[in-house]
Amino acid sequence: MPAFSARGIVVRASSLLLAFERIALMGLMYLLTALILVNVVTRYSHFPIYWIDESAVYCVVWLTFIGASAMTRLRLDFAVTMMTERLSARHRKLAKIIATGMVVVFGVALVITCFLWMDPIGLARAGFDARKLAAETFNFLYTERTQTLNWPTWVLYLTLPIFAVSMTIHGLANLLEDLELVPRTPLKGFQLSELDGVN
């Protein structure tokens, strides 16, 4: 398989993304723990920091979607296996391909809904003027700010289009593996055990 083939690019992009996601997940967990501990200390010393709760919440939101993307590639998730485990090997493989295909379908659909929602073309047409876009299309996304951090909300919402794209790429990489068009890539840096459940 030539390194620059479309398949190769997808698998490599997916591995690269996963490496980023790994670092981001660790970083967000450290950040979250630190934020909550700082909150405890500052509140008990009568200097509560106003924006900490909101930061911690957005930290968890980013953790969710970055982690959800990573777990797609790691093939970790709750799925109902009641029917598939009773199928013959050939049919089971087919079911697997359909299931992985659905990941790609969802990824693409989410890219589309993000496109409708964030309307990058409309924004460019409005000369990147948030108020002009709002006046023309009733889309006020780029004029909003968060309540206590006072950040533009669209910056925080970016996790969704990122998730949509990375999930599509991971889904494609998984699909290529399931179709046996590429060999299974060992995924580095995640020492996860199938036994560690999350209930």
Partner: peptide
């Protein structure tokens, strides 16, 4: 931290 992050994401994405 990494494992806690991945496992919580499984739950949180469901939410």
């Amino acid at each position: 931290m990494l494992r806690a992050g991945v496992y919580s994401a499984i739950v949180l994405f469901l939410v």
